Simulated scan of single mutants.
Amino acid sequence: MTTDSPPMPAPIAAWHALAEARDPAALDALLAEECVFRSPAVHTPQPGKALTTAYLTAALVVLGPTLRYVEEWYAADSAVLEFEAEVDGLSVHGVDMIRWDDTGRITSFTVMVRPHKGLEALMGAMLVELTRS
């Protein structure tokens, strides 16, 4: 017996389209000004649309070519997206926890990654991408 999946929320559909196209230009319309990014590599939350855009843009470059979402769970104003990717030959497994406001703009984007070696590879690749001029 199968059950119907709930419909994909509009902000998640927009995120999937953006991630598939690897087009960070679409982040401007998707992120709220007060968006906060939480990284597994940075101890403190990174506040603001500009920082969130920088991190997500770098992630699209680093993870984008191999990023694959494997499971998703939705609530009224949030979702958890489980993903797999490869960085420098190492498997990365993680979740994106995303919250949005009543206008459909993302207000919080939290990433958790495992295993430790995959996280280390991701941190190194993200540092390179974030420091490009």
Rank of each mutant, 00 (worst) to 15 (best):
Y55H: 09
T66S: 00
L51A: 12
S78H: 12
V62N: 01
G64E: 11
L63S: 00
S5L: 07
D23C: 07
A17M: 07
A25G: 15
P40R: 00
F37I: 14
L60Q: 05
T57A: 10
E20Q: 07
A26G: 06
A75T: 02
S39D: 05
W15E: 03
E71N: 08
L81G: 14
A13V: 03
F83H: 11
A17C: 06
L18I: 14
A14S: 14
A41S: 14
F83Q: 07
A75F: 02
L67N: 00
E84C: 04
S5H: 04
E34N: 14
L60T: 03
A32P: 10
L60D: 04
Y74P: 08
D28C: 03
E72W: 07
E72G: 05
A13G: 05
A75Y: 01
Q46S: 13
E33Y: 05
E33K: 09
A79H: 14
R38E: 06
V87P: 00
W73M: 10
A54M: 15
G48I: 10
P65K: 02
E33P: 14
P6L: 00
V70K: 09
G48N: 06
P6E: 01
S5Y: 09
P7S: 08
A58Q: 07
L30W: 05
L27P: 13
A10L: 14
L51K: 09
W73R: 13
A19K: 04
E86K: 00
L51P: 12
E82S: 10
P40M: 01
P47F: 13
H16D: 00
E71K: 06
I12T: 02
I12M: 02
K49M: 13
A29R: 08
D4A: 14
D28R: 02
F37T: 14
V80E: 06
A79G: 14
P47I: 15
A14V: 04
V80D: 09
D77G: 03
P9F: 06
